[in-house]
């Protein structure tokens, strides 16, 4: 690892100024992604600017009007065990409790996860299905983006020089159910090959409203808009679940890499989608078995 100077700003404004003063520097939260990149010399920053002393980036709060606010420095483990997240966004807490492994959950932050832009991760699809806002702050001001505006491409985000993600907000919604399913290539893998996130409002056996997202298999998490439109207002049968999954799988542009090629990923995306819908509605004739 190349030598660097290490800085610990105490506020968002100070961090932003340091980032602008040291354009060759890297911001660090938990370090789980950045350390790997440093060690492999994929990045060789002049300065590492640690966010760990910035109190405004911590904490998880909720208000009925604004919903959940999750500080960017919240660890995956904190998201998983937070009573507020478990109450108001149970699928997010559940996802965080299954992500990676105990050590990485105690080290990695939700903000760092989004800012790295690595497709092989779980929170982005979950947060997009929850219609979350990403709040970006700098010495110049504040911007609020949706997850699909923030994640612009493979390992790329909308962050501009001097900007940091301060928090994630999950607005109150009319959805009353949801699930985040992750499929691993082998049980020994840490990272997802594909994941599928769904938020919905049920009326008996029918689906009144739905948001569906595929992640980890596409450059950025992808809304399944045709599949959503097809499902809305219909009674969910095993046959409908299969139709929705077929449509959804046709809407994504899967990536090919060491974890799997595009056609395998499309198949697994279809399967994760169908099984999750079946699990949520349990229609007659389905072979409901949970996706991983």
């Amino acid at each position: 690892m190349k030598d660097f100077d290490y800085l610990e700003p105490a506020s968002i404004a100070e961090a932003s100024e340091m980032m602008l003063a040291h354009p060759g520097g890297s911001v660090m939260a938990g370090g789980t992604a950045l350390m790997l990149a440093l060690r492999q010399r994929m990045v060789t920053p002049s300065h590492v600017i640690s966010l760990r002393r910035i109190r405004d980036l911590r904490g998880i709060t909720h208000t009925p009007a604004e919903g959940l606010r999750i500080g960017a420095l919240a660890l995956h483990a904190e998201v998983a065990r937070s009573p507020l997240v478990r109450q108001h966004a149970p699928m997010l807490a559940d996802m965080a409790s299954r992500l990676a492994n105990p050590q990485v959950r105690n080290q990695g932050t939700i903000g760092g996860n989004l800012c790295y832009g690595d497709p092989a991760t779980d929170p982005p699809s979950c947060l997009l299905a929850l219609n979350a806002d990403v709040v970006l702050r700098s010495a110049r001001g504040t911007r609020v983006l949706k997850v699909d505006q923030f994640a612009t491409d493979y390992f790329a985000t909308a962050l501009e020089p001097g900007e940091i993600v301060s928090e994630i907000r999950i607005p109150p919604s009319a959805f009353d159910a949801g699930y985040h399913a992750r499929f691993l290539r082998t049980a020994a893998e840490h990272r997802p090959l594909v994941n599928f996130a769904v938020s919905l409002r049920k009326q008996g056996d029918a689906c009144e409203d739905v948001r569906m997202v595929i992640g980890a298999s596409t450059r950025v998490p992808t809304r399944l808009r045709k599949a959503e439109d097809w499902m809305k207002g219909k009674t969910v049968t095993a046959r409908l679940a299969a139709e929705v999954a077929d449509l959804g799988a046709s809407e994504i542009e899967p990536i090919s890499d060491i974890r799997g090629d595009g056609s395998f990923r499309r198949d697994m995306a279809r399967t994760a989608c169908r099984r999750t819908i079946e699990d949520l509605f349990n229609p007659a004739g389905s072979a409901a078995t949970s996706a991983a």
Binding site: Y6, L36, R52, Q103, V104
Partner: peptide
Amino acid sequence: CETGVCGCCSVLIDGEVIKSCLSLAVH
């Protein structure tokens, strides 16, 4: 592995388990 995969570097920080190959001493 020193890449966060094998876990043989696991230690506790304030009682929580982490991988010490993914963390700086200054942290």
